[in-house]
Nucleic acid binder design. Structure first.
Lengths: 267, 267
DNA sequence: GGTTTTGTGATTAATCGAGTTACCGTGCCC
DNA sequence: GGGCACGGTAACTCGATTAATCACAAAACC
């Protein structure tokens, strides 16, 4: 612990960004110290003094702290703006290289053939949002979109909706009246409506309620339905495409797969 | 191994981005398979079949693969563009939250007082570049900048140089003639020159050559000198500010710290 | 000169991930 | 029906990191 409440959050995040525990502790320790020695750092943070040196060295190599080679040596954190920018750069570089590598690798013989009727499950707020944008962009005739939770109505989503060509019919619904108003404001082009999907929303049998996230139907041939699991706030979705049998099949599968009931939060 | 050469590179990168080995293997396995079962995947990749399921679940939770809940269940990777976008989003979100947390935490009593004459060491290409931009932006009178290696002349750097107000004297040097030409093209406003720093560049005594990276002197009061270690390609720098004794002191320190000789590559 | 700091290295303990095996349910072929 | 390959889950072993201590040499301080 670092004393302050949100310091621990910072440590947590730094670890998610790839730092070790000691490294993360030392870094936030330094941001609240401006400049300090190993001893001072080990007092503030719960990092044993003898391990501070290693941690700092690692941090320096990643461009997050500077070292003054005096005796005793002093450390200081790079200014916040520079630090975040550096982290961003590193990541951006990696993603870029990854993208390159993956392009050079596609295809190894045949993939399995698969039945016509496909239903895929996916999870993760960002991923589902990206898929949503993707689908919005490739619509030909008609889009039906229902937003079940205000938190899903992001900037990016509104942009995507506004980017829909005007010759495509755009129907956007919301589960509540105020949400609908918000949508009408953000996407004036769209025909908005309220709900019509309470049957999806309400609790089913005795199981606890599962909040409906979004429902997207493109050209009556591709559908994406998501729900938000109550506690973990994680969004999960099912996604179907390319079949002539219409919605009913999907809806049935939806039920069958328990998407509307409970499902163990992904690990 | 995955057969293909650059597949391993992708795996490497994915691990750096936070995935476990199995997860990384499964993901690239899927990108070259379009759609596949656990069995197929375990054949392509060297991941034991029984562990494919866990890996995939993790990947799904992160929004990188989709699962078809049939029997046998099928997996497929999210399209490359969506995947990278999702990774980007996740990271961006974390960095953003980190930034918030760290702002709420600054300052814990006094930092150590430190001597007037400060020399700080830092490392990492991105970090040094950021610091360079930072310094360029806060110059008042004069900027002297020497580029020792063409790879350092990035887009971003050129932008920063061009953003320097015209009432600030801007001197930009290069170690070679062609490099100077490139700079003159990219930054027409600047007064360019060649080298003048061979004494820094050449090998010293019998030690192997250390390539000079960049040298930046702002308002004659702040200096940043970097070198690029031959093998690891890592850039390391020293950075000094706020003293009236001019360059000489720094230069001497420079030598004393062996920046121009060899130094063990950070870990 | 003696004592406290400072820094490095080695050592132990705990954690986590890689790799393996055992086991249950389901369909399929004999 | 009995066996058998396949699909899926869950346990366990082993090895590599990492967190946490300890021992010790070199400086710095009084």
């Amino acid at each position: 612990m670092d004393g302050t409440e949100s310091a621990e959050q910072a440590i947590e995040l730094l670890q998610q960004l790839g730092l070790k525990e000691y490294e993360a502790c030392c870094f936030v320790g330094l941001t609240r110290l401006d400049t300090g020695t190993a001893k001072r750092l080990s007092e503030i943070t719960e990092v044993p003094r003898t391990r501070v040196y290693d941690a700092i060295r690692m941090l320096e190599a990643q461009g997050l702290v500077e070292i003054q080679h005096s005796s005793p040596q002093r450390f200081r954190a790079v200014p916040l703006g520079e630090a975040t920018e550096t982290l961003r750069d590193q990541y951006e570089e990696r993603v870029e290289r990854l993208s390159q590598s993956l392009e050079d690798v596609e295809a190894v013989g045949e993939g399995d053939e698969s039945p016509v009727q496909q239903v895929w499950a996916m999870a993760g707020r960002d991923a589902i949002e990206n898929r949503t944008n993707q689908l919005l962009g490739q619509a030909d005739d008609e889009i039906v979109f229902v937003v079940g939770d205000g938190s899903l109505l992001t900037e990016e989503l509104i942009d995507s909706l506004n980017a829909v060509p005007s010759d495509i019919e755009l129907l956007v619904g919301a589960l509540t009246e105020p949400l609908e108003a918000e949508i009408r404001r953000g996407v004036p082009e769209a025909t908005t409506f309220v709900s019509g999907l309470e049957w999806l929303h309400g609790e089913r049998a005795t199981e606890e309620a599962t909040a409906i996230g979004r429902l997207l139907l493109v050209d009556r041939s591709t559908i994406l339905v998501s729900s938000i699991v109550p506690e973990s706030k994680e969004e999960q979705a099912i996604f179907g495409e390319g079949f002539g049998n219409g919605l009913v099949v999907i809806a049935r599968r939806l039920m069958a797969q328990g998407l509307l009931g409970t499902r163990d939060p992904a690990q």
